[in-house]
């Protein structure tokens, strides 16, 4: 964050109804005040040095590095908001590399006219989520775009962390007969966001599962579970994760539909919206591919790491050209899992 020459400037107006103006991204005193008096205090990060262009950090040993951008609409939804999502999404990408999240950057792209109070709430959420995840926000940036050129607020975060497993997990490590472990019930985030977007009121409200996953991954590492592959179930849900892993590894994955936990509320909502829960996004669930002999240990470990409902849902089978994922129904019939083209759309009737 650029240093500015000292000088007199107006105190920022952050009272009720104060709005972001183009000048808040202009590099002058308005921006300096926005960062120094609103964003940084709200995030409450001791490590954040707003006077420097970047942060100097140190990591011992192999490190993972990732970035992601967040454009969720609405900005606030039951169980989370764009701030907690921006932290947990990046923290979880690190966790899927078996890396302990250490440092994050946060960049805001703000639309002119956003209320400063909203920005403050998001910044507070970012600070709180980072603390929960054990990551420190080390640097950041703020830009403002004209009204109509953004959807209120976009956030980019990047993160670095130290790899804590003996080797980095990835699809190339899959072996025939490996067990697929699913960390919990699926579908919460996508349905929560879709319900708030469409103003569908479920009672009680469906809450996103947005949460950091590092503690669960670390528990698996500490318990001695060999992690062949980890994948968080974000866009495209469980289906996309299984298909991607199978295709990257050039193997076949088969899972049992009755073993996949879906809450009563989510399955009802999916029924109503015409969605298959395996395609719905999550922000606090992952799959771990582990040697079959480690499957029970992995399930027990995830159970006690408070994920709940962790289950072995299937296994890898010998190589299949091109790779594919199959799902076995309760009736014993197998079908191939496909990933949907893009955005999920409600059915017509």
């Amino acid at each position: 964050m650029k240093d500015e020459p000292a000088g007199p400037h107006c105190a920022i107006n952050a009272g009720d109804g104060a709005l972001i103006q183009l000048g808040h991204g202009g590099g002058g005193s308005l921006m300096r005040d926005l960062i120094g008096k609103i964003i940084a205090p709200a995030m409450d990060q001791a490590s954040l040095d707003i006077e420097s262009d970047g942060a100097a950090v140190s990591l011992g040993g192999p490190a993972a590095f990732t970035t992601d951008s967040y454009v969720v609409s609405p900005l606030f939804f039951p169980g989370g908001d764009i701030g907690s999502l921006a932290v947990n999404g990046t923290v979880n990408d690190l966790a899927m590399c078996a890396a302990e999240p250490s440092y994050l950057s946060v960049s805001f792209i703000i639309e002119e006219g956003l209320s400063i109070e909203t920005l403050k709430r998001v910044a507070q959420s970012i600070g709180a989520a980072a603390k929960t995840a054990g990551a420190r926000i080390a640097t950041g940036d703020t830009k403002v775009v004209e009204r109509g050129k953004g959807d209120g607020l976009y956030i980019n975060t990047a993160g670095v962390g130290s790899v804590k497993a003996p080797f980095a997990p990835g699809p190339s490590r899959l072996r025939p007969g490996d067990a697929i472990i699913l960390s919990g019930d699926i579908g919460r985030h996508g349905v929560a966001v879709m319900a708030s977007r469409a103003e569908l009121d479920f009672t009680p409200p469906i809450r996103s599962d947005c949460a950091p996953l590092w503690d669960q991954v670390r528990a698996l590492i500490d318990a001695g579970v060999e992690l062949h592959c980890l994948r968080d179930l974000t866009r495209g849900g469980l289906a996309a994760a299984l298909v991607e892993i199978a295709q990257s590894a050039g193997c076949e994955i088969a899972v049992d539909e009755p073993e996949i936990a879906v809450s009563e509320q989510i399955s009802s909502a999916c029924e109503l919206l015409g969605l298959d829960p395996i395609h719905v996004a999550n922000e606090g669930r992952f799959i771990a591919v582990v040697p079959a002999e480690h499957a029970d240990l992995a399930v027990a470990t995830l159970g006690s790491a408070s994920a709940g409902q962790a289950r072995r849902i299937g296994e890898t089978t010998p190589a299949h050209q091109g790779g594919r994922a199959l799902i076995r129904s309760a009736y014993g019939v197998k079908r191939q899992i496909r990933t949907p083209k893009g955005e999920q759309l409600p059915r017509i009737c």
Binding site: R324, L326, K334, R335, Q336, R338
Partner: peptide, 8 residues
């Protein structure tokens, strides 16, 4: 058929 048939 495409979505659900084994092998497709």
């Amino acid at each position: 058929y495409y979505q659900y048939r084994e092998g497709g």
